[in-house]
Design a protein around this nucleic acid. Structure first.
Lengths: 342, 342
DNA sequence: CTGAAAGCGCTAACAC
DNA sequence: GTGTTAGCGCTTTCAG
C-alpha cells in the first residue's frame, strides 16, 4: 500500500500543465481557464490529490488552526464550548487544536502550553481556562497571534475577553432570593483566582447589600465536585444554617444539592433554596431542576470567533471586551413564593 | 509590534554559527558541542526563537498532530475521552486536532471530515464517533495514516479498534438483574447503527436467555436524553411494566430515571431497578447512584495511543483490535437483594 | 491565462 | 562537530 504523498507536481504532469496551474486551481481566488481546470480536476481526482495544508501554511503564514486551552472538562459547561467552537470554526475552514492545562499548576503551565501552541503557528488562541502571564501575552502579540479569553477576564486591558455579565448575574440571583423572603444567605465560592468567581460573588454581595443584607456563611469549593460537597457539609452541618445558598457554578451546585438531600436529609427548596450559575444540561434535568443563570454559549462562541477573525483578517490589533447578558432561569430549586406575603 | 517571525537563520546570524547548527540544537538526537550550544541558546533566547513545527513537518513528514473525530460531547463519556487523550498525547509531544461530526449526517459527513483531517497531514486518526466508509479507510491506509476506532468497532477487519467488552458487560448486567429476582426486563436501545448498542443488547439478551428469560419490553432512545425520556414514557406509561430496565448508556439512563421518578412517581429500585453503561461521573452522584458497567477510559486511551504509536513509529500495518474488560459497579439503582430469598 | 523561477523555515545528507 | 547544499510541497511574483 501507501501510495504515500501525491503532490501538485504529480497532478501537473498527468494533466499536462504546470505545477503552478494546479496550485491556482486549488486557490479560491485564482483564475484558471475552463479547459485547464477540467484537465486538472480529472488528474487530481484520479490521483486522489489534495493540497497539503501545512506546505500552504508555510508560505501564506496562515495555518487555519486555532489553539484552544481548556482545563475543566468535568465542568459540563466546557464540553459545550469545545463542541460549539469547533463546529462553528470548522464551518469557516478553521480547526481547533486542543491543549489541556492541568488546573493544578496554574499559570506556569499555561505559559508553557501557550508556547507549544505558538510552535504550531496557530492563527489564534482561545484561553478557556486559567490566565496567562503578561510576558507571554506580549509574545503572542509580537507574533501577531490574537488571543481571546473565554469566560474569564484579566486585569490586562490589552487582552480581548468574552464573558457573561457575571456581576449582574450574581446580583439577579441575590434579588431573586431576597424576593422569596430568604434571610440567611450562604455562598460557596469557586477557585478564588478566577474572575468568574470574583465577579459572581461581588454581584451577589452587592445585591444583598442593596437590601441591607449580608452573607451569613461562606465556604470555598474551588469548582470541584468533591470540594463543593465538603463545603456544603461545613456550611450546613449544624442547625444554624443558611436558608438559601448561591453556589458559584452549576457543577458545584449539584454536589451541594446531593449533600443537602442525601446526607443531611434537607428538602430543596422547602428547607434551603439553591441557585447556581451556567445552566449546563443537568441543571434542567428533573433530578436537579436548578435555578441558575444561563450563559449563552452560542453567543459567547460567536463573539469569540468574531474577535478572532477581526484580528486575523484585518489585523485589528485592539483588544475587544465583550460582556453578554445572562438570563435568570427560575426552576424548582428555589421557593415558589415568599414565606411572608410580598 | 509584531516582530513577527524569528527564523533559525536569524539565530544563526546572531550566534555566529550556521543555520544547520541551530537546527541541530533543536533536534533532540543531534550532536552539538557545548560551546556552540551555549551561543545558540543565548541567541535563541534573546530573539525568542522557537522552531516552526509546520516547516519541520514538511520535511520530516510528521506533523505530531492526531485528528480526533467526535460527535456526542453531550454524552459525558466523551469529554473524559477528549481530556485524557489530549493530555496523554500532549505528554508525548503530540496534539489533538478536533473534528466535530454532526451525528445527523452519519457516514457521509465523516468521510468529508476525514478528508479534511488528511489535509492537515495528521499522523493518525481517532474515530470516537460514527463509522467511516471503506473507501476512505483505504485512502487513509494508502496515505500511511493509521486509524483507530474508539469505543466502536466495524465489520471491516482491517481497522484497528479499542472497545470495552460490551457483550460481556450486557451479560453481567443481565446476570445481576436475574440474581436480584427480577422477572420482567426492559431494554432501551441506543442508536441502532452503533456497535456498542448492538453488542450491549446482544450480551444482555444472551444473559437473559441463559436463564430461560427474554425481553419483556424494548424501546429506542438513540443515545439522546430527550428520546430516552420518550422511550421511558412509552415503556412505563401503563401498569403492565418491566420491573427492571437496562438502558444502553448512562446518559440515557439518567433521562429514564428522571421520568420514572418525577413523571411517573415510581421508586427506584423498589418499583424498578435501572442499570446503565459507561460509569460517567454523574452515575456516582447521589441523585442517580446508578448501577452500571465502568468503561476504563484511561486504559482505553492508553491502548488507543499504543496502537497509534505502533503504527506511526514502526509502520506497523496490522489492525489491532483491543477489547478491555468493563467492571460491574453496583450502586443504589438496583435492589439490594432478591425478592425471594436466595 | 499560463509557465518559470524564487523561496516560505526547516531537516538531512554530504563533505570537510 | 560543523558548514554547505538540496530540497519538503506549496504560493506567488514575474514574464510572456
Amino acid at each position: 500500500m501507501a501510495n504515500e504523498k501525491v503532490t501538485s507536481n504529480d497532478v501537473a504532469r498527468l494533466a499536462g500543465v504546470s505545477q503552478s496551474a494546479v496550485s491556482r486551481y486549488f486557490t479560491p481566488g485564482s483564475s484558471v481557464s475552463k479547459k485547464t481546470s477540467e484537465k486538472i480536476r480529472v488528474a487530481a481526482e484520479q490521483l486522489g490529490y489534495r493540497p497539503n495544508i501545512l506546505a500552504r501554511s508555510l508560505i501564506t503564514g496562515r495555518s487555519r488552526i486555532i489553539g484552544l486551552v481548556v482545563a475543566y472538562l468535568e465542568n459540563y459547561f466546557y464540553p459545550e464550548v469545545v463542541e460549539r467552537l469547533s463546529k462553528v470554526l470548522q464551518e469557516q475552514g478553521y480547526h481547533v487544536l486542543v491543549f489541556i492545562s492541568s488546573p493544578a499548576s496554574a499559570s506556569e503551565n499555561v505559559d508553557q502550553i501557550t508556547q507549544e501552541i505558538l510552535d504550531y503557528q496557530v492563527d489564534g488562541i482561545v484561553l478557556a481556562s486559567a490566565s496567562m502571564s503578561s510576558e507571554l501575552a506580549a509574545r503572542c502579540h509580537a507574533h501577531g497571534v490574537p488571543i481571546v479569553l473565554f469566560n474569564r477576564s484579566q486585569d490586562d486591558e490589552r487582552l480581548s475577553a468574552v464573558t457573561s455579565d457575571n456581576r449582574a448575574g450574581g446580583r439577579k440571583l441575590a434579588e431573586l432570593l431576597l424576593s422569596l423572603g430568604h434571610e440567611k444567605f450562604g455562598y460557596i465560592a469557586g477557585f478564588e483566582g478566577a474572575s468568574t468567581q470574583r465577579d459572581r460573588e461581588a454581584g451577589f454581595l452587592e445585591g444583598l447589600a442593596a437590601a441591607g443584607k449580608s452573607l451569613y456563611r461562606r465556604s470555598v469549593g474551588n469548582f470541584r465536585y468533591e470540594e463543593a460537597q465538603a463545603a456544603a457539609r461545613r456550611m450546613f452541618g449544624s442547625d444554624d444554617r443558611p436558608d438559601a445558598v448561591f453556589v458559584c457554578n452549576d457543577h458545584m451546585a449539584f454536589a451541594v444539592m446531593d449533600v443537602l438531600r442525601f446526607e443531611l436529609g434537607l428538602e430543596i427548596p422547602q428547607d434551603v433554596s439553591v441557585v447556581g450559575f451556567d445552566d449546563v444540561p443537568p441543571a434542567r434535568w428533573p433530578a436537579y431542576n436548578l435555578t441558575t443563570i444561563r450563559q449563552d454559549v452560542d453567543a459567547m462562541v460567536a463573539e469569540t470567533i468574531r474577535t478572532l477573525m477581526r484580528a486575523i483578517d484585518n489585523g485589528d490589533d485592539q483588544a475587544r471586551r465583550v460582556t453578554l447578558d445572562g438570563t435568570l432561569v427560575v426552576r424548582g430549586s428555589t421557593r415558589k413564593c415568599p414565606a411572608t406575603s410580598n
